[in-house]
């Protein structure tokens, strides 16, 4: 199995704090990988480093063998990596369809083509019926789906999702899980930053656990939950399953 993305010895220091410390992992093509860890573990920093929103202090991010840690976010996107934001950011002055069209303009300048791709992305996440709605008419789960549709319109090979399930009710989250499974079956590689362990168990084939900026475990979800270091990081020392 080939690695689509390789993270090598990635380190990012802020003033007085090493948020991500010497983290290495790789993403297998067509699989869903989850990056988890307790609050402040460095998940979002790590995510932003891969997405080009932050520059690493040290280390490398290789996508299809190409180094991308010095690339700006728009270049990273054009290489085939799309991301969502933890806080939904619809373009409020544009309709749902127009929002989804923006992503398509990363590979085409043809409005008709962009519109068709946008419809396709909206259908993929179940939002096609609301294509002409205003974004402020959408519910929170729909807005999260719109974020995903925008990202899908860029025709990514790798989709980075930053806490898409946060704030969703269990039934709504189940809907998102269904969408993720469908996308992965279609060949898309997904990296998921997630706080809620239960959801990660359902979707991820590999889990990378961060704690205080360092990787403490990596493996199948069932292996990771049985790992004493992971349990300790989430529940404190002295807890053993």
């Amino acid at each position: 199995m080939t690695a689509l993305l390789e993270v090598k010895n990635l380190t990012r220091a802020f003033v007085g704090l090493v948020a991500v410390n010497d983290v290495s992992f790789s993403l297998q093509a067509g699989r869903i990988t989850a990056l988890i860890g307790p609050n402040g573990a460095g998940k979002t920093t790590c995510f932003n480093l891969v997405a080009g929103a932050l520059r690493p202090t040290a280390g490398q991010v290789l996508f299809e063998g190409r180094s991308l840690e010095r690339e700006p976010p728009e270049a990273v996107c054009r290489m085939g990596i799309a991301r969502t934001f933890q806080i939904v950011r619809p373009m409020t002055d544009m309709s749902v369809l127009e929002n989804a069209m923006v992503g398509a303009f990363s590979w085409t300048t043809n409005v008709k083509e962009a519109r068709e791709k946008a419809y396709e992305s909206l259908e993929n996440v179940g939002l096609a019926g609301k294509a002409n709605a205003r974004t402020d008419q959408l519910t929170l789960p729909d807005r999260k789906m719109l974020e995903m549709a925008k990202a899908l319109s860029t025709r990514p090979k790798l989709l980075l999702l930053d806490e898409v399930m946060a704030g969703l009710r269990p039934t709504e989250a189940a809907g998102v899980v269904g969408v993720l499974h469908r996308l992965a079956e279609g060949g898309l590689t997904i990296l998921l930053v997630e706080h809620v362990m239960r959801i990660v168990m359902e979707v991820a084939s590999t889990v990378v656990v961060l704690h205080h900026g360092a990787k403490i475990a990596e493996g199948k979800p069932s292996e990771v939950v049985a790992n004493p270091a992971v349990l300790e990081s989430y529940l404190g020392a002295g807890f053993h399953a």
Partner: peptide, 26 residues
Amino acid sequence: SRSYWGYVWRAMRDDDEAARALGVRT
């Protein structure tokens, strides 16, 4: 406003960072 430029410009007007994440060379 209904062309490629229009969509891309309105996107960067509404949210520069989000537009860049979608590949817009703002």
